Computed example of a mutant assay.
Amino acid sequence: MKIHLALAAIAALSFGVASFVPAYAMGDGGNSSGTSSTVKKCKKGEVVKSGKCVKATSGVLPDEDLYQQGRALAQAGEYDWALIVLGAVSNRNDPRVLNYIGYSHRKSGRLDEAFGYYHKAIAIDPNFVLAREYLGEGYVAAGRIDLAKSQLIEIANRCGTTCEEYQELAEHIDGGVN
């Protein structure tokens, strides 16, 4: 069973681990990066490969593993490190990767840069509601509630008003939070 990456990252942070790469476990041993359910301490700019820390470079791990580790770092607030790891992904047109690059820039306060990545992700997959949610949250942070509401409408058209992405963006719009 896959352990949610964000939970591993949050657990590591709450125990005072300053530098880490979240890892996840597969019950069938199917994780090609060979990581375990423990959190491996690595330096910024490194990823876990076969239980060891290695420099995050293109091809060091399959794109999916780089994406998962980069995503977990972004969700744990390690935005610059996440950008290094996500930047090592070979497929520059993976909307999920573009989304978390945008997320890392947005959370670091670089809204204009974030918007470009979100727009590219949405251009590739117009139904990618998570990217639309994050784009809308960026618009809220920029004070562009009108644009955030237009993303909320787009999300509603794709998954309704009860999906998590709609609910999260609606909450951000109502509360004016990033």
Rank of each mutant, 00 (worst) to 15 (best):
M1H: 15
K2Y: 15
H4R: 12
L5S: 15
L7N: 11
A11I: 15
A12H: 15
V17K: 12
A18H: 10
S19Q: 10
S19E: 09
S19F: 06
S19T: 06
V21H: 00
P22H: 10
Y24A: 02
D28L: 11
D28I: 01
G30E: 14
G30N: 14
N31I: 13
N31C: 15
S32W: 07
G34C: 15
T35A: 12
S37W: 12
S37L: 13
T38F: 11
K40W: 01
K41D: 10
K41M: 13
C42M: 10
K43Q: 14
K44R: 08
K44A: 09
G51A: 13
G51K: 08
K52L: 04
A56F: 01
A56H: 02
V60N: 04
L61R: 03
L61A: 10
D63Q: 03
R71E: 04
A76K: 00
E78S: 11
D80I: 06
W81P: 06
L83D: 00
L83E: 01
I84A: 06
V85N: 08
V85G: 02
G87S: 04
G87P: 02
A88I: 10
N91P: 02
N91G: 10
N93Y: 04
D94V: 00
R96G: 07
V97K: 04
V97L: 06
L98T: 02
N99Q: 06
I101N: 09
S108T: 05
S108W: 12
G109V: 06
R110Y: 15
D112V: 09
A114R: 00
F115A: 00
F115V: 10
H119R: 14
H119D: 14
A121M: 09
A123D: 09
A123Y: 02
D125M: 12
D125K: 10
G136V: 02
E137W: 05
A142I: 01
G143E: 06
I145P: 05
D146G: 13
S150I: 04
S150V: 06
S150E: 13
R158V: 14
T161M: 08
T162A: 15
E164W: 10
E165N: 09
Q167L: 08
E171T: 07
H172P: 08
I173N: 00
D174E: 11
G175P: 08
N178H: 14
